[in-house]
Design a binder for these strands. Sequence first.
DNA 1: GTCTATAACGTGATAGAC
DNA 2: GTCTATCACGTTATAGAC
Lengths: 193, 193
Amino acid sequence: MYTPGMETSERLIESTRRLLWERGYTGTSPKAIQQDAGAGQGSMYHHFRGKPDLALAAIRRTADEMLAKAEEQFAGPGTALERISAYLLRERDVLKGCPIGRLAQDPDIVADPELRRPVDETFDRLRGRLAEVLTEGRERGELGDTLDPEDTASTVVAVLQGGYVLARAAGSTESYRQAVQGVLGLLAAHAAA
Amino acid sequence: MYTPGMETSERLIESTRRLLWERGYTGTSPKAIQQDAGAGQGSMYHHFRGKPDLALAAIRRTADEMLAKAEEQFAGPGTALERISAYLLRERDVLKGCPIGRLAQDPDIVADPELRRPVDETFDRLRGRLAEVLTEGRERGELGDTLDPEDTASTVVAVLQGGYVLARAAGSTESYRQAVQGVLGLLAAHAAA
DNA sequence: GTCTATAACGTGATAGAC
DNA sequence: GTCTATCACGTTATAGAC
């Protein structure tokens, strides 16, 4: 992943992002990061205090990117259901899984409050924005009054995260697609009711 | 975890089951297993060919146990919705996550077809049984005709798996509860329609 | 800012004694 | 069947030269 026109610290963060996604925190060694970034031991420990410090920088950047991409669909045109549908069905590297959700399974991430915070915040903001979209849809009469926006927002995020899990287990994106179609079908039926 | 009245190979499997749940495959070392089980290196390599072989035995047992516990709710009394509700709301170690779903995030598990197979099969059977329960509910008129049992079954499994992810990220079971309430609410609205 | 050297310890496995 | 010894290599970091 060596990229010539990029600062060493920048390259280290980008390599860490990629390796955290592929192998998780426990499975990613400082040595692997250094090799991937084309940097020596000394460089890494000059720019970062250690593995957790570097991981924190990488996680924050990935989290910001994820929320920005989600906002593209949430703030887009269409009904609430159309925007949520666009979000769930947009092109994704389903078999690679969610770069943030993956970290929630890592015991070393969950055990460290500094590292867990950006993961928690990411899901909290996603859920919050989805709840706003759903509330809007209910006010516009696109969805029934009985729908609980907060609970349903959590459900949508959970279907996304769980869909990733099923797809990786199966080695196929089909189960992700099914899970998404299922929840969209339930939401559509609710709208019609 | 040393348990006196148990065969060494039995203790090794039980320790592996617990450590795989807590730390995942990559994060679990043979040495840690041996110490937990109170067995030496030689014992482990006498009974098992290595780490993957021992992990396979542990995963199979956990998978069987999971499916058996799920069947208790699926085969129980009540409507389809009541049985699915009982399944999702039964007592669970939510913050510890799903011992099988956790493995789907592990690159070394996914990369090894022998180790991935039991994980995939577990979800496939869960999804299959849920689809049967939903089909039954539709035939009995408990659920609307527009509901797709296969897709919805995937959705329910995904909500469960995703709920675990959200709960671990938040360090609280609340988001799991919300995600489950959300999908049950959508299913209930569908039933009423 | 970057590099190499070194260190103390862990990993996954084999060999062979008991 | 169980144990300890040994091995080659990886991990996470520190020290200090360039």
